[in-house]
Design a protein around this nucleic acid. Structure first.
Lengths: 122, 122
DNA sequence: AAACCTAGTATCCAAAAAGATACCTTAAGC
DNA sequence: GCTTAAGGTATCTTTTTGGATACTAGGTTT
């Protein structure tokens, strides 16, 4: 009974961290990406953050890490077969998020958008 | 395009905070609850936390706050009509979370369960 | 008149998450 | 023999989150 919230928390656990949704987004849409490609795709992330987030996703078997033994190093990241199964959930969250932003706009006006745009100008 | 992750983040935003999933769980299953009932249901939460989490949910129009002007004060919390619409999403997250815990157990054994049980003994 | 009730605020402090910066490896290119 | 390359790690500082504690209001009970 009480479990119905702890399992929601399990789902959240793997999405939590400022960068995981973006990382997943890129891997889902681009397929396979090198570490440096991800870094370029997420201009403001530090290596430390990117590494730790990828390791957590790897632990959860969402992301696969393929190391090429060569120098300079080459490492490729991709969504695992198991990870692909969470696509629908991400889609559902995305859909809900989209309509919720709409709802907030109806409630409070479009000021939030303005704020978001301002935040981008840095 | 890049929005597909920021809207996932929007969905996360309202779930983030150690207590929001449990609060929602109780309000979804119990219907209407007073502040003090919620406090009893969540034995380890502080008033400050409970208040702030409820205010955030109220801001997002997920939770309704009904004040009775009487002394001692009485305030009832419930899920809004709009909030009910996120039931399916919560259910989807719950389902995914459940099967993911199963998956983790298959990968790493049931040690996590043991740890969780140990954590309860305090 | 003191104590209790509910639903909070206010203030301060600890812990966790995130960020900045510097450093490491080893082979190839100049 | 110095620099560059990629994919990191180590260390330190800042920011964000969460928690502990004390306090408030004003009518009711003892």
């Amino acid at each position: 009974m009480e479990e119905s919230c702890s399992t929601v928390e399990t789902a959240l656990e793997i999405l939590v961290g400022k960068w995981k949704p973006v990382i997943l987004y890129h891997l889902f849409t681009s397929g396979t990406m090198r570490f440096s490609e991800l870094q370029r795709a997420l201009p403001n992330i530090t290596k430390k953050m990117l590494t730790s987030q990828l390791r957590e996703l790897e632990y959860h078997d969402i992301v696969h890490r393929k190391i090429y033994m060569q120098i300079p190093p080459k490492v490729e990241y991709s969504i695992t077969e198991y990870g692909l199964k969470m696509g629908p959930l991400l889609q559902a969250m995305n859909d809900w998020g989209t309509s919720h932003m709409q709802h907030l706009n109806e409630l409070y006006g479009d000021d939030r958008k303005v704020q978001a745009l301002e935040a981008i100008q840095d």
